[in-house]
Computed example of a mutant assay.
Amino acid sequence: MKKLILCAAVAIFGLTSIHAQDNSMNNTNDGIDFGIKAGVNFAKLTGDDVEDADGRTGIHFGIVAEIPVSDVFSIQPEVLYSQQGLQQDFEGGESKLKLDYINVPVFAKFYVAEGLAFEFGPQFGFNVSAKSEFQIEGASGEETASIESDLEDSVEAFDFGAGAGVSYKFDGGMFLQARYVLGLTSVYQGSSEGLFQDDLNNSNLSVSLGYKF
């Protein structure tokens, strides 16, 4: 798994290095931007077994690069750590499915006005942690016990999704971004003996604040 994550990161950001070297040989400067971003996830899973479940609020952070292709079009690859999953209340407590990923979105950006862009593209996700947690409450509502289990053998290591979003880049390098990504592959294979009987897919709405150097 670590090798897959490393290969993904090297492949994505290797493209920017090759692009920069090509521009250097041709004595051109297209303004490739590197940066960082962080924000909040409003994530959940889709499936018949979890229709009534709440989403998991988590965080994401990572690095980005924007590669201009023309004045109004660019490619933005990213490598992000992302907390996803869901939580669900039951009588006497709460259960959580905590799925953490290294996500590699590669989005096309179309600028429709100064600083304002619409984004579309695929996302490649690599699961790095999968746990279930049950919190049991007493009669007074206080937590009396917490049971955590490892689900790595039940959760798929790779997740493929597609998404869309909008971003606004301010003068000086700061940018705001909102994005929705829907998983197109099942991350949990349901079974009659498992935690869920039906297959589950990721669904994540994220809001980010970032800075490009």
Rank of each mutant, 00 (worst) to 15 (best):
M1Y: 08
K2C: 08
L6K: 15
C7R: 15
A8E: 14
A9R: 07
V10A: 13
D22R: 10
N29A: 10
D30N: 14
I36P: 00
I36G: 12
K37M: 12
N41G: 03
F42D: 03
L45G: 02
T46Y: 05
D48E: 12
D49I: 02
D54N: 15
I59F: 15
D71Q: 15
Q76D: 05
V79D: 10
V79C: 15
Y81S: 13
Y81K: 14
Q84L: 11
Q87A: 03
K98N: 13
L99D: 03
D100S: 14
N103D: 15
F107D: 08
A108F: 10
F110N: 06
Y111P: 00
E114D: 14
G115I: 08
L116A: 13
G125K: 04
N127R: 13
E137Q: 04
G138S: 12
A139N: 08
S140N: 09
S146I: 11
E148S: 11
D150A: 04
F158R: 05
F158E: 07
G161W: 03
A162D: 02
F170P: 00
G172Y: 07
G172I: 08
F175I: 01
A178D: 00
A178N: 00
A178V: 11
L182P: 02
L182G: 02
G183V: 09
Y188V: 01
Y188M: 00
E193G: 04
E193H: 04
V207Q: 00
V207E: 00
S208N: 01
K212R: 12
F213S: 05
